[in-house]
Amino acid sequence: MAIKFEKKPGIVAYLTTGDPDLNTTRDIALAAIDNGADVIELGVPFSDPLADGPVIQRASERAVARGVRLTDVLVVAKQIREARPNAGLVLFSYLNPVVRIGIEPLCREAADAGIDGILLTDMIVEEADEYLEALRANQLAPIFLAAPTSPDRRLKAIAEASLATGKPGFVYAISRVGITGTQTQVADDAEDLVTRLRQFTKLPIAVGFGISNSIHVAAVGKFAEAAVIGSAIVSLIEKTPPEEAATVVGRFIYKLRDGAGPSQQSGIRAAYR
């Protein structure tokens, strides 16, 4: 269990946990892993996802309406970890649900569930001292966002904070200013940001926001270790009947990158029934 990108470009797949339901999220995650996703980001649904575009907003709203909680996301994480010991697992959340449980207990439970790292959308490095301490105590990787608007001074601080717990993850480079959602091409902002980040870190860099197809992934692969696919997967799940979602997402992930290995997703359901 570690975050590593063996093939280039690596694939990070984001899922809004509990949309359409917890078991389906688990099955989709397993299918994504079996079809070449290196890291799964398990999104915690939140009532006020202000960094997200309409697709993830809707998914979040549906999951919140079903009563999905942060503790449910940890249960799904544990199931994924037991079934796929080598996959990278990241908990992805807005701060408030985490504050509600408490940062220290959350980190403890996340480590118990087999999570490798945590990304909090609205946690900036300046506010992160206690958070980093709790991550360090539980051997979790902090994953921070870096933005095209971040000056070098901030990128340096982000790079340093990303190594502060002794457990390496990756730096999440936001491809463009704006909220999550698909776009037609990868913005020039992205390469510039990755180049600037490289001055400060040897950690893998994953580029996200607006990455939705194999052309984008290939473009990102030219200058970064990994691409994060979020809204495109969540949108696919929205349009697909729950019982087909794992198969459809697995196939989608497989096509994002050549040579990702054979799909093993036929065995997924058997493991849980």
Binding site: L50, A51, L95, T121, D122, M123, I124, E126, E127, F144, L145, A146, A147, P148, T149, S150, P151, R154, I158, I174, V177, G178
Partner: peptide, 20 residues
């Protein structure tokens, strides 16, 4: 951190807004 009122306040935003 900047902008504290006792324990309250601070800055909890996506990184994109920090420069602004």
């Amino acid at each position: 951190t900047a902008g504290r009122f006792g324990a309250y306040g601070g800055r909890y935003v996506p990184e994109t807004l920090m420069a602004a």
